[in-house]
């Protein structure tokens, strides 16, 4: 299925929750969706007969300036088609439903997005930092992150 067909199919089932489709000529085109309904949309993508996205390639977090974004790359082993779905959450309340119960692979990916960008995945069974030390302050890959002067008595700047 092409991305346009997938978009039309999703539009039929979720109408207003599926926002727009962004065409990128030399990269992955993506579909922007409503973050409030992300779990249902992704569950539909996984279970619907002609979609069958059984493989979650990756989840990544991003900081688009005013919002935080979560990007889902899905792939279907059966139909060999893939899709990119993006959802944007406001910085003040960066909460989104976890999809660990759809794909177990989401576990560490969501922890990484939480650690580095600060997206909070509601319903995640173990949402703790995965790369930074547990007592690290802030989320380092945010655009407005300020590098600390010191960590445990060690000077950080050069």
């Amino acid at each position: 299925m092409t991305i346009q067909e997938i978009y039309d199919l999703l539009k039929i089932h979720f109408n207003d929750d599926i926002k727009e489709i962004t065409d990128i000529s030399n990269g992955d085109s993506f579909i922007t969706v409503n973050p409030a309904n992300i779990f249902d949309i992704l569950q539909f993508c996984r279970d619907y007969e002609t979609l069958d996205f059984d493989y979650l390639t990756l989840i990544s977090g991003m900081d688009s300036g005013e919002n935080l974004g979560v990007v889902y790359h899905l792939y279907s082993m059966k139909f060999k088609h893939s899709i990119v779905i993006k959802a944007f959450v406001p910085k003040e309340s960066p909460n989104i439903q976890s999809v660990v119960y759809l794909w177990r692979a989401a576990d560490w990916h969501e922890r990484e997005a939480f650690d580095l960008i600060g997206v909070v995945f509601d319903g995640h069974p173990n949402l703790i930092r995965i790369l930074c030390p547990y007592d690290w302050e802030g989320h380092p890959l945010r655009k407005d992150y300020v590098t600390p002067q010191e960590y445990h008595g060690m000077k950080v700047p050069y």
Partner: peptide, 11 residues
């Protein structure tokens, strides 16, 4: 490198 120690001789 916010996460990198700038020289192990600091430790």
């Amino acid at each position: 490198g916010y996460n990198v120690l700038k020289g192990i001789d600091r430790v």
